[in-house]
Write a protein that binds this DNA or RNA. Structure first.
Lengths: 339, 339
DNA sequence: CTGAAAGCGCTTACAG
DNA sequence: CTGAAAGCGCTTACAG
C-alpha cells in the first residue's frame, strides 16, 4: 500500500494524504481527513522510510557507536555497563520516534561511511575509544554527535562525562579516613592512553596530598583488563613483598577478579585487603564481600546524552559545545576494613 | 556526492557507475572501471542506502526484536544473556554486510509496522515473549524471521532452541547422584506461561522418575524473577518448616539472589543448601560459592540463528521450517554438596 | 482547502 | 561494453 494508492481510493492527491499523515490538518478539510484516516486504518498503511529519508535527506535513525577496541575483542555489549547504557538509550530513542542502529566499528572511516550511507540524524558514542580514533571521530563527523566519557577542550563538541577525578578522590579518601596509608591504584589499561583513567588517578593523588602522603609507584597497577586482569593482579599481590593494605580499582569487574583470587588463596577480606571499585554495576553486589564502589547513574547519563542529541538535531548544529558532567557518590558495602 | 555526479565526471552513464560499484566488471571495460574507481576513492563516495532500499524493496537491515515484557520493564539489554546475544549477533550481521536495528516492542503491531517501515530484510527475535504475542508474531510476520527459544509445531518457522528438557534433567540428575532426594525447582515466571520453563520442569520430573521419586509440589517455586526474586525466595526458604536440601534454579541470577540471602543469614553453602543454576552467565562465576550450572553456548546459538536468517533471505521464503536445537552441559563449580 | 509537477539517488529492464 | 528512460514512494515548493 502506498500513498498514491490511498490517494486514488480517496479520490484526492497524494499530497493531501501526506498532509493528513503529518497531521497538517489546517490544510485539509475535516471530512477529507476522516475519509483518509479510515483508509489508512483499513489497510494498516505505514510510510516507507526509505522514500521519506531520500527526499528529506534525514532518516530519523540514531546510531549507537560501539568501538571495537582490539581486533580480537567482541562486541562492547558484553560489558554490562554498555548493555545497560545501550538498552536505556534505545528506549529513549524509540519513545522520541527515532530508530536505533548499532554500529560496531574499528576506525573512523567505517563510522563516516555508515553515517552517510544511512543519512543518520545523529550518533551517540558509547565508550571512549583509543585516543586517536575518538579524536578523529569528533573532528570529522559531519552530523550531530554526542560523546560519552571524553571531551577535547580544543574542539567544540557535545559530551556527557563523569566527574572522574572526584570519583578517584572519594574512593581514596574513603580509605584514608579508615586508617589506610598504603593504597594501590589498579586500572584496566595504561594511564597515558586514557583520559578517564588519568582523571581518576589525579583524584587518587589529590586525596593523598590532602593527607600529606605521596602515592607509591610500586602500587600503581596498569593494564589489568576485565575479570582476567583482576585475577592476574590478585596473584601478583599474593607474591608481593611490600603490599598495600587497600586498593582503588577503576572497574568493579577487575576488583571482582582480585577478590576471587585472594579468597581462593584463603585471604580474609576485607581484613587482608580493602578494595573500592568503580561503576556500581551488577558484579559489585554479587561478589563476596560486596564491593564498596563509586557509583555512576547510567539512566541519568543516557537521558542527558539523548537530550543533547535532540537539541543538536533541532539546531542542526554539531558544534554547539554543550557538556554535562555527572556527579559521583560512594556506595558503601563490605569490602573495606577500618585499620 | 551522487552516482550522477560521478558519472558526469567520468563522462559515462550512471548505470555504468552502478555496475562498477556492484562489481559487475564483466559489463564495463577495465579502463572505465579504473577511472570510476579513482573518482569514487577521491570523493569517498558511499551509496545512499535509502535510494537503494527504495528501488530494491529491501534494505539490508536485520531487526533484532527485543520484547518489553511488562509496561514497567526496561530494555531487555539489562539482562546479561541478552547483551551477549545482541552483541554477538551484531558482529555477525555487520560482517555479512548487513545493518543492525534494535526494535524494542510491546505488541505485534509495533513489530509489523517497523518491518514495513524499513522494509527490513529479516528479524531475529531474541527472547520468547508472552505466549500470545510470540505466537502472533510468528504467524503474522511477512519477512524472514528466526525465533530463539520457542517453536510452534503447528506453524512452519525458523527456530533455534535449547534442549531445555535435557538441561532440567541434567541439573536434577547431578543432584540426585550426590544423594539429594528433596530437590526444589525455582523459576522466574509461571510454568504455564512459558514453554522453556515447562520443558526444564519436565526434565526435572523425568530425573526424579528415574530415581523412583516424585517431585514435591511444595518445592515448586514459581514467579521469582531476577536477583530480587531470588532474594525473596531465599527469605521464604529460611522461614520454611520442611525444606529441600537442594534447588534447581532456571536462572543463574535468581540463584545468586538465593545465595546472597542465605549467606547473609549465616547459612553455610553448599552444606545447608545445594543449588544448580542455568545459563552459565557471568554472575555464576562471581558469586560465592560459584554456581554449578547448566551451560548454553551463546556464540553458537547466535551463529546458528544468523545462518538460518541468511538462508531464509536467500530463499526468499519465511516458511522453510528449519530448526536447530543446542545441546547443554553441566559446568561444575562449588554450589553443590554431596550428602 | 486542494492539486500537478518535479525531484530525492539509486536500479532495472531494454535496446543497441 | 555502454546508455536513455522509467520508476521506487515519498515530500516540497508553487500555483490556484
Amino acid at each position: 500500500m502506498t500513498l498514491k494508492e490511498i490517494a486514488a481510493e480517496a479520490g484526492v492527491s497524494t499530497m493531501t494524504v501526506s498532509n493528513v499523515i503529518h497531521q497538517n490538518y489546517a490544510r485539509v478539510s475535516p471530512a477529507t481527513v476522516e475519509k483518509i484516516q479510515a483508509i489508512i486504518e483499513k489497510y494498516h498503511y505505514v510510510p516507507n522510510m526509505a522514500a521519506r529519508s531520500l527526499v528529506r535527506k534525514s532518516s530519523r535513525i540514531i546510531a549507537l557507536l560501539l568501538p571495537i577496541w582490539y581486533a580480537d575483542t567482541g562486541s562492547l555489549l558484553f560489558n554490562p555497563y554498555v548493555g545497560n547504557m545501550v538498552g536505556t538509550l534505545d528506549m529513549l530513542i524509540r519513545k522520541a520516534g527515532y530508530y536505533t542502529m548499532l554500529c560496531s566499528f574499528r576506525n573512523v572511516e567505517e563510522v563516516l561511511s555508515f553515517q552517510r550511507n544511512w543519512q543518520i540524524d545523529g550518533s551517540i558514542m558509547v565508550l571512549p575509544h583509543l585516543e586517536e580514533i575518538t579524536h578523529g571521530l569528533v573532528e570529522q563527523t559531519q552530523t550531530p554527535l554526542v560523546v560519552m566519557d571524553r571531551r577535547y577542550d580544543d574542539i567544540a563538541m557535545n559530551s556527557v562525562t563523569l566527574n572522574d577525578r572526584r570519583g578517584g578522590y572519594l574512593a581514596t579518601k574513603y580509605l584514608l579516613e579508615r586508617g589506610h596509608q598504603k593504597i594501590g591504584f589498579a586500572c584496566p589499561g595504561h594511564l597515558v592512553d586514557s583520559f578517564v583513567l588519568t582523571e581518576r588517578y589525579m583524584g587518587y593523588a589529590e586525596a593523598h596530598r590532602e593527607y600529606g602522603l605521596v602515592p607509591d609507584n610500586r602500587w600503581l597497577f596498569e593494564n589489568y583488563p576485565q575479570l582476567e586482569g583482576g585475577k592476574r593482579l590478585g596473584n601478583e599481590l599474593i607474591e608481593m613483598e611490600k603490599r598495600p593494605t587497600a586498593l582503588v580499582s577503576t572497574e568493579d569487574i577487575m576488583a571482582c577478579g582480585v577478590v576471587q583470587t585472594l579468597i581462593k588463596a584463603r585471604w580474609k577480606l576485607p581484613r587482608d585487603l580493602s578494595i573500592v571499585g568503580f561503576d556500581d554495576s551488577a558484579p559489585a553486589e554479587l561478589i563476596t564481600p560486596a564491593l564498596t564502589t563509586v557509583r555512576q547513574d547510567v539512566r541519568l547519563k543516557a537521558e542527558k546524552a539523548f537530550e543533547m542529541m535532540l537539541e543538536a538535531i533541532r539546531n542542526d548544529d554539531r558544534r554547539i559545545n554543550r557538556f554535562f558532567e555527572l556527579d559521583v557518590s560512594i556506595t558503601e558495602r563490605d569490602s573495606v576494613a577500618t585499620l
